[in-house]
Structure formats: C-alpha cells, structure tokens
C-alpha cells in the first residue's frame, strides 16, 4: 500500500475514507421473562472513518446489542445511528436495513459449511449480482492469495483450523468492499498463539484497506494492541464510561506489547473495566 494511504489510516478521521459511524443517544430495552431490561441507555459514540474502535466492557453489558443495532439485526427504541451521514436507524425507522456496507464477523464463525472456501468468499458479490461468477471467483482467488489462503480454495471450511476459518471469513467480508467491519469477539475461541497471528493479519488487512473496524472484545491486550481508541463501557445499561486514546503509533508490531506505554495503558484501562465488572457481577449478570 502506498505511503499516503498508510498515513491516512494511521489516525483515521480523514474525509476521503468511508465508514464514519455516529451513535447518538441510542436507547434500547428488551423483554426478559416479562420484565423490561434496559440494555443500552442514552449511548453516544462517534467513530471517525478508518478508525479501529475497540469496545470493552463487562459480560452482558449490552455491547452486542449495540453492534446488532448497527448491523440491522434488531431495532432501537430511541436515538439514531448514522453511517457517513446517512441515517441507518432513528426517528421513524427503528431498524436499520441489513446491508453489505456493514459486515459482521461472528463470535463462533458463520462460514457456510456446505460451500467450499472459494464459494464462501465469492458469495457476496454473486448474490448481489455485482460481479459475474467468473469475476467474483477471480477476485476471491486474488484476495485469498493476498491473505495467505492459497491452496485452500477447494477445501470446505470444516477442513481448516479455526484461525484459518476466521481469516476466510474476513476475506469474505472484504470481498464486498464494506465501509465497516463489525467484529463480535471473533477470536474468543482461539488459543493465544493463533490469536497473535490473527491480530497481525487483521492489522495487515487494515493497512491495506483502511476499513473502519468496530471490534468488541473482553481481552484488554487485544484491545490496546489493535485499537486507535478503546471504549470502556459501563455495566448494563451500556454507555461509554471512558474513552482511551491509544497513542502507540501504527503500524504496530508485537514489540508494542512489551513497551512501557502499553503497560501503563493496560493498567489504566484494566482499573476502569474491573470497576464495572464488579458492579456487573454484583447485579448477577449472565455471560453473553
């Protein structure tokens, strides 16, 4: 990638890139056994285009609810969410339309087990009829080669390790040139070694594409290593408690983990998150 783009994505926020998300005063409650539970309460967050925004917070605090609202999996009760100035949901339209400009990578992976990896990757442009089959396969092969997945085209997802599966899934998302990637703890089930490989691969992808990344995680190291900013959420109802600027320059490598600045940030964020986790634990929140 060229130096100009690298600089642009270094700190996000440049108008030339797509994927700026504005979350304004969003409220969402849902029914749990007859009782109304407030999951998100007057939550506002502004994510500039091309930022890697890491969301951390106690289990069950409503982070996923927020992600699902952006993706359009369910509606909101109040407030608004916009993408590049276009209202996704808000006044008069409680539920965003699901679209290929915002693609979710799920916690447990959602590759179609009955399609080969190549068919999985080519799926988006083909069903949208944006590319012909031949073009879609060509592009899919190209992107898979770039991501180091050559040779796995004809295999089924079940034949790959879970780390490689996650990589295929991200390539499948990138096939659609999304403005935003919404990741919901995608590396939760991976072992530490695989995780670090995945982190570097994700950053490499990011430097190439400059896509905005909304990333939910429990892992503070992961949050600091990847993010431009780390948003610590309150326990339910969920809203940003504190936003941490991660001033470690991009592009990052794993050396960043041992730097003093990294340790300082980790201590600071961990203190902030622990406080909420204790509150949440006292309230008896369940995992999820």
């Amino acid at each position: 990638m060229n130096a100009q783009l690298r600089q642009t994505v270094q700190r996000g926020g440049q108008t030339s890139l797509r994927g700026a998300i504005e979350i304004v005063d969003v409220v969402k409650s849902y029914d749990q056994g007859g009782a109304s539970v407030q999951a998100v309460d007057h939550c506002s967050l502004s994510i500039p285009a091309g930022e890697i925004c890491m969301i951390v917070g106690p289990s069950g605090c409503g982070k996923t609810t927020l992600l699902n609202a952006i993706a359009g999996f369910h509606g909101i009760d109040g407030g608004a969410i916009t993408l590049d100035g276009r209202t996704l949901c808000g006044q008069g339209r409680p539920k965003a339309e699901i679209g290929a400009d915002r693609i979710v990578v799920f916690q447990n992976g959602a590759l179609f087990p009955w399609k080969t990896n190549l068919d999985n990757v080519a799926f988006g442009p083909i069903v949208q009829k944006r590319l012909t089959k031949a073009e879609a396969y060509e592009k899919a092969r190209e992107l898979m080669a770039e991501a180091g997945l050559s040779g796995h085209e004809r295999a089924y997802p079940g034949e790959l390790s879970s780390g490689l599966q996650r990589r295929v899934e991200i390539v499948r998302a990138l096939m659609n040139d999304p403005a935003v990637l919404l990741l919901d703890e995608p590396y939760r089930a991976l072992d530490a070694l695989t995780k670090s490989v995945m982190h570097e691969a994700l950053l490499e992808t990011y430097y190439r594409t400059g896509v905005t990344i909304f990333f939910i995680t429990h892992d503070l190291e992961e949050a600091i290593f990847l993010g431009h900013r780390v948003v610590a959420m309150t326990s339910r109802p969920c809203r940003p408690k504190r936003i941490f600027e991660i001033d470690i320059p991009h592009p990052r490598s794993y050396d960043a983990l041992t730097s003093t600045r990294f340790r300082e940030l980790a201590a600071e964020i961990s203190a902030c998150v622990d406080e909420e986790a204790i509150k949440s634990f006292a309230l008896g929140e369940r995992e999820g």
Binding site: V104, A110, F112, G124, V127
Partner: peptide
C-alpha cells in the same frame, strides 16, 4: 445456526437466496 442466515443477509442475500443457500443445504 441463526448466525448463518444473518451472515448471508449481511452479504446481501435476499430472503429467497437465504432459503436457497442456507436453509435448504443446512
């Protein structure tokens, strides 16, 4: 797994395409 159908929708599949590519083979 319901996330498979959601993933297909995310990738731009219509209701009928979700049926054809996810529900039926699944």
């Amino acid at each position: 797994d319901p996330s498979l159908a959601l993933a297909a929708q995310c990738l731009g599949a219509s209701r009928w395409q979700v049926f054809r590519h996810v529900i039926a083979p699944g």
